[in-house]
Design a protein around this nucleic acid. Structure first.
Lengths: 200, 200
DNA sequence: GTCTATAATCTGATAGAC
DNA sequence: GTCTATCAGATTATAGAC
């Protein structure tokens, strides 16, 4: 498991990146082999040399996108529990989002909606949410041990934070409610204050 | 605006219900006029008598589904603020969900993911989230007035609850994490306690 | 590995009879 | 209003040359 560079050959990575662009342009329902081929300099048929079917390609693509997400999320956060939690939340619900980040969210949401029907997809998103909950849970537990946080049920609080973060992301990507993310950021800080820190 | 019965003719409602079944069976990307026609006793061509294009049909369908959601959500909740809030949360994140409710969530999520790309869809989901936030906000404001709740920023707390509820729903529909919804229910109660009720 | 050409099927949409 | 028949184009996937 030597990061992204070993897992895919050059050709495969080119196809994955073309798929990413095609999906941004046409959406998941509009994704076709022709449209993927349009996004790079090789023909439709060459895709079938690397992938047996469209379904297999899509499962690989989900893998590719989720790996990117994980790599992005797992960057070092070795600080004290309180600011580690802030870093994670800032990473998941940034106050400002550039185009690239925003497009990444869109692609993930469109793929996610397919997890309702496709077991391979479902397992991947189970994995993502479990990763998020586990990471946040560990930070909270560290904070409880060193006295930064109150002795709360860490898993429950982590579930809450992940649900809120995911709900906020969905809101940002599927509505025109531009103030909502900032409000959620504020209320998450407030939640952490009143739930994790002692009653002042 | 005389409820669902006036807004759609019998034929139109039959088509909408057939579309609903087709979408449950094939998903949004697999939705086609033929598959909708398969779900009721009339031909493909008859659909084009009632709708000019597939796009127009889909926008109507979104309207149909969102109306159902709103009707379901807006049932009377005339109690005191504290239990009104509980009722709303129980309605949005039920501990137990029957097949019908679950399928309704799936359809809504699949349609929602299309709001990333389609402005008509985006406006509908803006409307839904605004309705939820406004309803919850009003309950909180009533609670502040009559002394049940602390004098918090009602809009911010409402945004938080809606984000959490939506995140929990997405989790339930797109992962195999069966314990998560119960955890979020608990933590939402805890959030309401520590955020809205006085510091004990 | 990549190409062009093509097969078989499905798509949205329309024409015209009843 | 609903039907059958049909169109033009797109879809996934393969065959066979290079």
């Amino acid at each position: 498991m030597d990061s992204v560079d070993q897992k895919w050959s050059t050709a495969e990575r080119e196809i994955m990146e073309a798929t990413y662009r095609a999906m941004l342009e046409h959406g998941y329902p509009g994704l076709s082999i022709s449209r993927i081929a349009e996004q790079f300099d090789k023909s439709k048929a060459s895709i079938y040399y690397h992938y047996d079917s469209k379904d297999e390609l899509l499962v690989s693509f989900l893998d590719f996108v989720v790996d990117q997400f994980k790599t992005n999320f797992a960057e070092e956060i070795d600080e004290d529990p309180s600011s580690a939690l802030n870093t994670v939340i800032e990473r998941l619900v940034p106050l400002q989002m550039n185009d690239e980040e925003f497009q990444g969210r869109i692609v993930l949401i469109e793929l996610r909606s397919q997890a309702t029907r496709n077991e391979a997809f479902r397992e991947k998103f189970t994995e993502i949410n479990e990763l998020l909950v586990t990471s946040i849970c560990e930070i909270i537990e560290r904070g409880i041990e060193d006295g930064t946080f109150r002795d709360v049920e860490a898993a429950r609080v982590a579930e809450h934070i992940v649900a809120t973060v995911n709900g906020s992301t969905i809101d940002r990507v599927t509505t025109n409610r531009e103030v909502a993310p900032a409000a959620v950021r504020l209320s998450l800080s407030s939640y952490i204050d009143s739930e994790l820190k002692s009653c002042q």
